[in-house]
Amino acid sequence: MQETITQGTTPTFSFTLPLEAAQLKNFFVTFRQSGKNMLEKSISDCVKSEYTVSTTLSQKETFLFSTDQGVQMQVRLSDKAGNAFASPVFPLRVAPILKGGEVI
């Protein structure tokens, strides 16, 4: 199922890994729209648990995406043994909001 990012929200992306999160050396989540990388989250932006890594977008970050096109997301990571991995590219939708701006 294709997930939907709603503008002006704080969506959390949680990734279940095939290796222990403690073994991660690097971890990147890239969001691309209209052929351009709009946002990148690195390991320092993520929260690790035993086999999962999650990262949350801010309201401001969700406004980087326009609602008239889909967003593509991909994870790349490397472990301490030197292996590098890449996930498939996941398509995401962007939903608009009626009241603009951030909600504090």
């Binding site: 997930e3 959390t12 095939p18 996930s87």
Partner: peptide
């Protein structure tokens, strides 16, 4: 509901 999306990368990570 809080917006939480789960992606299981266990079977999708290349090169394995």
């Amino acid at each position: 509901q809080p917006n939480v999306f789960h992606f299981d990368l266990q079977e999708h990570l290349s090169p394995t």
